[in-house]
Design a protein around this nucleic acid. Structure first.
Length: 487
RNA sequence: GGCGGCGUAGCCAAGCGGUAAGGCGACGGCCUGCAAAGCCGUGAAUCCGGGGUUCGAAUCCCCGCGCCGCCUCCA
C-alpha cells in the first residue's frame, strides 16, 4: 500500500517515498493569530489532518509541525487598534484556534511552534545567507537577493524577468531589486522588536517557516503543505531561504489545497464573505463540518453555502440513523441469515475496505472514499429498515460491518466514529436550545402522542405532530418508538 | 498580460482511455387512520461548444466560450 500524492514541485501525482522511512517529516503553514479562524483555516487543518492520519495508518512515524505566526504587520496593527499588547492578542486567537480544531477532531500536531519563540534561529539563518552573499543589509533591514538564487521561481513557475514587468515599485524601498524580500525589518517606533546584529527589529514573514522546519524537522523535509495561495510568494521564498542557507533540497513534496469560495469567489477577510469556525461549530455538529470539508477533492475549490452544508448534515444524520437502528436491533429468532435478502449488504461490504483505502491512497480522494462509505451505509440502512424479523446471525453480520465501517471512517476521515445515541443527543439538545425548548419537554410530547395513537386518539396525536412540525421537528414512527430529529 | 485550475443529472460531486460512484432533492405506485418514515419503481442517448487521435474519449490533443485562483497580506 503506497500513497500517491500530487507534488506541486513536479506538477504531477507521484508515489510518496519519504527520505528516511519509516520517519516522515511534515510541515504545514498554520494561521496568523490576529483574528478568529474561518472555514478556510478549518479546511486546511482538516485536510492535513487526514493526510497525517493516513500516513500513521500506513505505519509511518510522522513528525508533524504546524506553526503559529504570532508576529507580523496585521498583528501589530490589530493590537494597536485594540490598545492591547500583541502577545495578549495572539494568545487569545491561538488558544481559540486550537480549541476549535480540537472540537473539529483535528489531531494535535507533534509541534506547534510560534514564530516569536524562534527569533534566534531565524537570525542564525539570516546570518548564513548574508555570509553566503545571498542576502544584504540595507539601513537596518535585511533582504534576500532574488537574483543570487538562480532557481527562484521554480515552484510557482515564474521567471524573474516576467515578474519584474508587472511589479509595483515603491520608491521608498531599500531593496536593490524590487523582487527582493525582507528577512529582517528594522523596528519602527511602537513596534515589538528584538535585538539583532543589524539593530532592533523583527523578522520578515517567510523566514519563520524556514527556521522552524529546520529546527524541528531538519534540512530536507518530506512534506510541506498549505493553501494554494501560499505558493507565491511565501513558499517560493521559503525555498530560496532554506536552500540558500543549507545547500540542500528543502522539500520533497509540496502539497497545496484549494480554497473555500462563496458564490464562486474566494472566501477572505477583505471581501467580508467569510464564516467563522466558531459560527459553524455553534450551528453544526463538528462531524458534519468535517464531512462537508472532505466532500470535495482537496485540490479543488470548495464552495460554501448553508444549503451545501445542510445537505451534508442530512447525509450524516441518515448515517447515524443507520448506526442507531443497527445498535437497537434485537433478533426475532435464532438462526442463520437469509442469504437472499442479505445479499445486497454482503456485496456492498465485499472489498469495501480496499476500495475505501485505495481512494485515499490515490491522491487523497476523500470524496470517492465517502462515496463508498455512503454506498455501504445506504445498503445497511435499506436492510435494517426493510426487515424487522432479523435473525441473530444477520444482526451479528450487521454489527461486524458497522464496527469496521466506523473504525475506518473514524480513524482516517475523523467522522462516523461516534455513538449514535450520543450523536443525536448532542444534535437534539443543541438545536432545541435554539428553539427555546427543552429536550424533556419534546420527549414528553412525543410519548404522549405515541400513547394517543395507540389509543386511537388521532386528533391529539395529529395536533402534537403539527405542533412539533412547526418547530422543525420531524417524526418517524416505528412500531417500537418514534424517532425524531430537528431540522 | 504571465502562470495554474475548473465546466459531469434540478443542486452538490466522483470518475482521468473500455462504455457515467455517492449525497441532497423530484416524480409515480404500494403501505399507512392521515402524514412522515418504509417499500417498489423512474432518472445523464451522454459529460460547455466545435474539430482531431483511437477499435473505443467525460477521460488524450487542438481551437473556441464561460468561470475561478495566484502574480500584494492571505489557509
Amino acid at each position: 500500500m503506497k500513497l500517491s500524492i500530487y507534488n506541486s514541485l513536479t506538477r504531477r501525482v507521484e508515489v510518496f517515498e519519504p527520505l528516511n522511512p519509516p520517519r516522515v517529516t511534515m510541515y504545514v503553514c498554520g494561521i496568523t493569530a490576529y483574528d478568529s479562524s474561518h472555514l478556510g483555516h478549518a479546511r486546511s487543518a482538516v485536510i492535513f489532518d487526514v493526510l497525517y492520519r493516513l500516513l500513521k495508518f500506513l505505519g509511518y512515524e510522522v513528525i508533524y509541525v504546524r506553526n503559529i505566526t504570532d508576529i507580523d504587520d496585521k498583528i501589530i496593527n490589530r493590537a494597536n487598534k485594540e490598545g492591547i499588547d500583541w502577545r495578549e492578542l495572539t494568545d487569545k486567537y491561538t488558544r481559540e484556534y486550537q480549541e476549535e480544531m480540537e472540537r473539529l477532531g483535528v489531531l494535535k500536531p507533534s509541534y506547534e511552534p510560534k514564530a516569536s519563540e524562534h527569533i534566534s534561529e531565524m537570525i542564525e539563518i539570516i546570518e548564513r545567507l548574508i555570509k553566503k552573499g545571498l542576502a544584504y543589509v540595507s539601513d537596518g533591514d535585511v533582504y534576500f537577493s532574488v537574483e543570487k538564487f538562480p532557481q527562484y521561481g521554480k515552484l510557482s513557475g515564474r521567471k524573474l524577468e516576467e515578474m519584474l514587468t508587472g511589479v509595483r515599485i515603491d520608491p521608498s524601498e531599500r531593496k536593490r531589486n524590487p523582487l527582493d524580500f525582507a528577512l529582517w525589518k528594522s523596528a519602527k517606533p511602537g513596534e515589538p522588536y528584538w535585538e539583532s546584529p543589524w539593530g532592533y527589529g523583527r523578522p520578515g514573514w517567510h523566514i519563520e517557516c524556514s527556521a522552524m522546519s529546520l529546527k524541528y524537522l531538519g534540512e530536507t523535509i518530506d512534506i510541506h503543505g498549505g493553501g494554494l495561495d501560499l505558493i507565491f510568494p511565501h513558499h517560493e521564498n521559503e525555498i530560496a531561504q532554506s536552500e540558500g542557507a543549507t545547500g540542500k533540497p528543502f522539500v520533497r513534496y509540496f502539497i497545496h489545497h484549494g480554497l473555500i469560495t462563496v458564490n464562486g469567489e474566494k472566501m477572505s477577510k477583505s471581501l467580508g464573505n467569510f464564516v467563522t469556525t466558531s459560527y459553524l461549530l455553534e450551528k453544526y455538529h463538528p462531524e458534519v463540518i468535517r464531512a462537508f470539508l472532505l466532500s470535495k477533492h482537496y485540490r479543488s475549490p470548495l464552495d460554501y453555502s448553508e444549503k451545501g452544508i445542510k445537505e451534508m448534515e442530512k447525509a450524516i444524520y441518515r448515517m447515524y440513523e443507520t448506526f442507531y437502528w443497527i445498535k437497537k436491533a434485537k433478533p426475532k429468532k435464532e438462526g442463520p441469515s437469509s442469504k437472499e435478502r442479505i445479499k445486497g449488504v454482503i456485496e456492498a461490504y465485499q472489498g469495501f475496505k480496499e476500495k475505501f483505502l485505495e481512494s485515499l491512497l490515490e491522491d487523497l480522494n476523500t470524496a470517492q472514499a465517502m462515496g463508498f462509505l455512503f454506498s455501504l451505509e445506504g445498503e445497511l440502512y435499506n436492510f435494517i429498515r426493510k426487515f424487522s424479523d432479523l435473525t441473530s446471525e444477520e444482526i451479528k453480520t450487521l454489527e461486524e460491518i458497522l464496527k469496521e465501517l466506523q473504525k475506518l471512517s473514524g480513524e482516517l476521515l475523523g467522522f462516523g466514529h461516534s455513538d449514535p445515541e450520543e450523536f443525536f443527543k448532542i444534535e437534539r439538545e443543541r438545536k432545541l436550545k435554539r428553539l427555546g425548548k427543552s429536550f424533556e419537554e419534546v420527549e414528553k410530547l412525543i410519548e404522549t402522542r405515541f400513547k394517543a395513537r395507540k389509543e386511537k386518539n388521532f386528533e391529539l396525536a395529529d395536533r402534537i405532530r403539527e405542533e412539533l412540525k412547526e418547530l422543525g421537528i420531524q417524526l418517524k414512527d416505528t412500531k417500537e418508538e418514534t424517532f425524531w430529529y430537528v431540522e
